[in-house]
Simulated scan of single mutants.
Amino acid sequence: MIPSKRLVASYIFDWIVIIAIAALGGGVNNITPNYRPFSLLDLSISFPYVEKEKIPTWLLIVAGLVIPGVIIFLVCLIFVPGPVVSKRTSKALIWRRKFWEWNTGWMGLGMSVATAFMLTQCMKQLFGKPRPDLLSRCNPNVDAVSTHRLGGDGMGLSPLWELVGATICQQADKGIFNDGFRSFPSGHSSFSWAGLLYLTLFLCSKFAIAIPFLPPRPYTTDTPVFEPSPNPTHSILPTHHQNPTTKTPSASPPASVPLRNQAAAPPAYTLVIALIPICAAIYICSTRYSDFRHHGFDILFGSFIGVVCAYFSFRWYHLPIRRGAGWSWGVRSRERAWGVGVGVTGYVGAEGWGSKDREGGGLENGREEAV
């Protein structure tokens, strides 16, 4: 089958957009932040400046992006498409599914960390909140408080109890100085949660790690009922109640399976798979507090950004964990790859994802679903 160039180009453009979002965040980081006024007697910004961070930026990238990317690749390479695939399925279809799950897994990860990075960097520059170690970075000229005074009503208590501007600082290193006004929100927190929570959601999806869930089943006359298998080792599958000799529906009332037997909890050890990335994100956040880089609220809000970006990006490319059987969404249709008009229900269509001159392959003949 010859893939549609139009469709392939639309997903290449997805990658371009994701990279552009990350580049925007990196570009914004070079802008001088807003300098919020501060007081020289403010104890919340008087912590010492720690030169060696527990989690430097390069290690954050490894933990929040590189390691999740490697794990996603290995899971797709080894476990996809899973044991439900027929042994007669061609190798080409199997490798197509592996590549598709790998691509969507990486696109979701890229969107998550890129969006969190861009939002965090923009907010840092806009708010200009002092870090807990600002005074150590600033090296203020204490004798010139009156010259740099911007506000405050504390002169009756102390001449230093004033709001002063950043011009009072004598720090020669502009990098250290400007970074002192980028406390809100925490970039380490948002980035780590964006990458590591996304990894947790991905692993939970692939290995069905979720609280048992019963999807709603609207009543129809064609809805199959559940019958207990005569062999307890066999799984319970939906089937129509039929007479084994006539192959027609029986007049006797069909058997049903109790609700408690329609779902089961995963093995408890699988929680370790889900919790390790989360625990790593929590540890990274804690280092920003112990290294005096962020206030508590900065870390909480940065974590919130990362959590929202991770969930949004996962659901953008993947089915719900409890109802998706570990799969990502299918490909867009060829004709709807770049957008749809008013009144069109979605981005899939009957024509599949092959090129126009080869209508026989792909989704339209149902082989892709079998993979």
Rank of each mutant, 00 (worst) to 15 (best):
Q242H: 06
Y198F: 15
P258W: 11
S250G: 04
A208D: 13
P232Q: 08
R260F: 01
T221R: 13
E227W: 12
F207N: 09
R182D: 06
L201W: 00
S205V: 06
Q242I: 14
S235R: 07
S229V: 13
P185Q: 01
L237Q: 14
Y289R: 12
T287M: 05
T200Y: 03
P249E: 07
A268C: 06
S192H: 11
P254R: 08
N178Q: 14
S256Q: 14
S286E: 11
F202D: 04
T245S: 13
I278C: 08
S250A: 11
R182T: 08
A263R: 15
H240K: 09
F213A: 02
T200R: 03
I211H: 13
I209F: 03
L214G: 06
A280D: 03
I278R: 02
V257C: 06
S190C: 07
A264G: 10
I273R: 00
A251E: 13
I236M: 03
S186K: 00
G175S: 15
L203W: 01
W193Y: 14
P215H: 12
T223A: 01
G187T: 06
T220Y: 05
K206F: 05
T245I: 12
D291C: 07
S189R: 04
R293C: 10
K206C: 00
L196P: 04
T270M: 10
Y269K: 14
R288C: 12
P230C: 09
P228L: 06
P258K: 14
T220S: 09
L199S: 00
P277Y: 08
D179Q: 07
L259W: 12
L271D: 08
A280G: 04
S205N: 07
Q262L: 15
I273E: 02
T245P: 03
T246I: 01
A208E: 13
I211N: 10
P244I: 00
L214R: 15
G187H: 00
K206R: 15
A265F: 15
S189L: 03
R217L: 12
T223P: 04
I211L: 02
T248M: 14
Q262V: 00
S290Q: 14
S190R: 05
A280K: 00
N243P: 07
L259F: 10
R288L: 07
A263M: 15
P258F: 07
T287V: 02
T246M: 09
C204L: 04
A255V: 12
K174N: 11
D179Y: 03
S186V: 00
C204G: 10
P277K: 11
F181M: 10
Y219P: 02
A263Q: 12
L237F: 04
H240G: 01
R182S: 11
R293I: 00
C204D: 09
R182F: 04
S205L: 02
S205C: 05
F226L: 14
P216W: 07
A255L: 15
P228K: 13
A208F: 05
N178V: 04
T200M: 08
Y289M: 14
P267Y: 11
P253A: 04
S186Y: 01
N178K: 06
T221K: 10
Q262W: 08
A194Y: 13
T233L: 11
T287E: 05
A274M: 11
A210D: 10
A280T: 13
